[in-house]
Simulated assay, not measured.
Amino acid sequence: MLTTQRKQLILQRLAHEGQIVAKALSDEWGISEDTVRRDLRELAAEGKLQRVHGGALPASAAVGDLRVRQELAPDEKRLLGRAGAAMVRPGQVVILDGGTTSLQVVQHLPLDLRATVVTHSPVVAAALAGHAHIEVLSLGGRLYRHSMVNVGASVVEAAERLRADLFLMGVTGVHAEAGLTTGDFEEATVKRVLHRRAAETVVLASLDKLGAASPFTVAPLKELAALVVPATAPRRIQKELRATGINVFLAD
């Protein structure tokens, strides 16, 4: 079997089964594990999968910058934004992550809502300007332009002083085994701290993030209060996620 054929079959199987086990594939195809691992390395370098110990998982498609991601699945994100906004109660302290879905949350918050929103996203902070009764606390640091969020020690230090009711967190990967992941080390660090400082963390995840993984771990799924996904999420993935014991809600 030619290398290009093997790689095509690997990607097809990954799409169908959601994971690749290198040893099982080498036994099935009668080739060495080294050959399989080399194929996986090369596919990972092309951004087509995420390598993990013993094999590979689907790579997250949510890797473009904020401008690119604004064009992806806008209808899904509107539904998720509406669902997220409905979870915010008057008087709460809510941490709102960066990202396009968070911007949809802002658009669905009632204009008369009285609450405090903490964010490390200058874009989200600016979007809240029209909500006159929401106090906005912006965590400053080094601007990570890819996601348009602030990261670094100053963000972490400020976050450690918070006690929030709810964190609406964004990630690029939601996988039953790999958990919650994202594509940048510093951004993952900030998300972990914000998660620890909230009584409850909820993830709003569009379809391109489900069953996928990115390089840096944020938290295991079991630590979530809830995961909100589009109602059109494949039943196989819904079943795998619910098998972890987390509450999965459908946005429609």
Rank of each mutant, 00 (worst) to 15 (best):
T4G: 11
E33P: 00
A115K: 06
A159R: 09
E157P: 06
K7Y: 07
L166M: 04
L111V: 15
T116I: 14
I20R: 03
H175P: 00
H53Q: 08
S32T: 11
Q70I: 07
S121Q: 07
R38F: 04
D97L: 05
V193G: 06
H16G: 06
V248L: 14
H175N: 08
G183C: 09
L109H: 06
P234C: 15
H53G: 00
A158L: 14
M148S: 11
L207T: 13
T100S: 02
G54E: 05
V63N: 13
P234G: 14
G81A: 00
V123I: 11
L72C: 03
T3G: 07
R145P: 05
P122C: 15
A233Q: 00
R89V: 13
G183K: 07
V36G: 02
A226P: 08
V93M: 05
T217N: 12
M148I: 03
F185D: 09
A61I: 10
L66C: 00
Q50E: 11
F185G: 03
D184G: 10
L49Y: 04
R192H: 02
V203C: 03
V36R: 00
L9I: 07
K77T: 00
L111H: 15
S32L: 03
R163I: 13
T119A: 12
G183E: 10
R161D: 07
D39E: 10
S154N: 11
V94F: 00
Q238F: 01
A158Y: 11
G152Y: 04
S214Q: 01
V94M: 01
S121D: 06
G170T: 13
D252L: 05
T201G: 09
G91T: 06
A233G: 04
G54M: 04
G99D: 07
A132Q: 08
E71Y: 01
K209V: 14
G64V: 01
G245H: 11
L162V: 13
L224M: 02
P230F: 02
V248G: 12
E157G: 05
A178F: 11
D34P: 04
Q5L: 15
D184V: 12
A45S: 14
F249P: 10
P230E: 01
L137V: 13
G140A: 14
F216Q: 09
G99C: 09
S138Q: 15
S121E: 06
G84L: 00
S102M: 10
Q50R: 10
A233H: 02
R197Y: 06
G91R: 06
R13H: 13
L139N: 05
A56L: 07
D208H: 09
L2T: 15
E200L: 03
R78D: 13
R145C: 05
R236W: 09
Q8T: 14
G141Q: 07
G140M: 14
V88H: 09
D27S: 14
L180P: 05
Q107P: 06
V171S: 04
A83M: 06
L143I: 08
L2N: 14
L210H: 01
M169C: 01
N247K: 14
K48M: 12
E76A: 01
R89S: 12
V248R: 11
Q104P: 08
R38H: 07
L66F: 01
V203E: 01
A125F: 05
S121V: 04
E135K: 14
T244S: 07
A225I: 11
